[in-house]
Amino acid sequence: MKCWYVWAKRLLWWLFWAIVGLLCLLAGVGIWMQREHLVLNLSTCEPLGLYQLIGNPYPLHDGELVEVELPDPITHPAVAEGLRDHWFPENQPWIKQVGALPGQTVTLSRQGVWVDGRYLPNSHVDRRTPGGRDAILHYPFGTYHLKNGQVWLYAPGNYAFDSSYYGPASQGHILQAAHPYWILPGSQYWLRKGD
Rank of each mutant, 00 (worst) to 15 (best):
residue 1 M to R: 08
residue 70 L to E: 12
residue 58 Y to S: 13
residue 11 L to I: 07
residue 18 A to W: 06
residue 157 G to M: 00
residue 75 T to I: 15
residue 168 P to L: 09
residue 124 H to R: 14
residue 109 S to V: 10
residue 54 I to Q: 04
residue 5 Y to L: 12
residue 126 D to P: 03
residue 132 G to Q: 01
residue 162 D to M: 11
residue 74 I to V: 15
residue 16 F to P: 00
residue 85 D to T: 13
residue 174 I to S: 11
residue 36 E to I: 03
residue 91 N to G: 11
residue 3 C to E: 11
residue 71 P to F: 03
residue 112 G to I: 07
residue 33 M to V: 03
residue 93 P to D: 06
residue 179 H to M: 08
residue 7 W to H: 02
residue 80 A to D: 10
residue 67 E to L: 11
residue 55 G to Q: 03
residue 113 V to G: 03
residue 95 I to S: 04
residue 22 L to E: 04
residue 145 H to E: 07
residue 182 W to H: 09
residue 12 L to S: 10
residue 90 E to L: 10
residue 66 V to M: 08
residue 188 Q to C: 07
residue 163 S to F: 04
residue 172 G to Q: 15
residue 158 N to M: 02
residue 135 A to S: 15
residue 175 L to S: 11
residue 155 A to W: 01
residue 63 G to M: 02
residue 49 G to M: 00
residue 194 G to R: 06
residue 146 L to I: 14
residue 128 R to H: 11
residue 140 P to N: 14
residue 107 T to C: 02
residue 116 D to G: 08
residue 84 R to F: 13
residue 150 Q to S: 13
residue 103 G to Y: 01
residue 88 F to P: 07
residue 157 G to S: 02
residue 180 P to C: 00
residue 140 P to Q: 14
residue 34 Q to Y: 05
residue 44 T to R: 04
residue 166 Y to R: 11
residue 113 V to Y: 01
residue 110 R to Q: 12
residue 96 K to G: 05
residue 143 T to C: 06
residue 106 V to G: 00
residue 52 Q to D: 03
residue 115 V to F: 01
residue 3 C to I: 10
residue 80 A to L: 05
residue 106 V to Y: 00
residue 86 H to P: 01
residue 5 Y to A: 10
residue 34 Q to H: 13
residue 19 I to C: 08
residue 146 L to C: 13
residue 13 W to D: 10
residue 27 A to C: 07
residue 190 W to L: 13
residue 146 L to K: 08
residue 98 V to W: 01
residue 35 R to L: 12
residue 122 N to W: 02
residue 100 A to G: 09
residue 25 L to E: 01
residue 132 G to W: 02
residue 96 K to I: 05
residue 175 L to K: 14
residue 69 E to S: 15
residue 8 A to R: 14
residue 160 A to I: 04
residue 95 I to H: 01
residue 95 I to Q: 01
residue 129 T to I: 12
residue 57 P to K: 04
residue 167 G to L: 10
residue 33 M to E: 01
residue 178 A to R: 02
residue 141 F to S: 13
residue 110 R to T: 05
residue 188 Q to H: 12
residue 39 V to M: 07
residue 11 L to V: 08
residue 188 Q to N: 11
residue 57 P to D: 06
residue 36 E to C: 03
residue 172 G to N: 15
residue 176 Q to P: 06
residue 90 E to I: 12
residue 58 Y to V: 07
residue 1 M to H: 05
residue 143 T to K: 05
residue 186 G to Q: 03
residue 79 V to S: 08
residue 190 W to I: 08
residue 182 W to A: 14
residue 108 L to M: 07
residue 51 Y to N: 08
residue 136 I to M: 15
residue 77 P to Q: 11
residue 87 W to A: 12
residue 126 D to V: 06
residue 142 G to F: 08
residue 179 H to I: 01
residue 23 L to E: 03
residue 121 P to F: 04
residue 103 G to P: 05
residue 38 L to K: 06
residue 90 E to P: 02
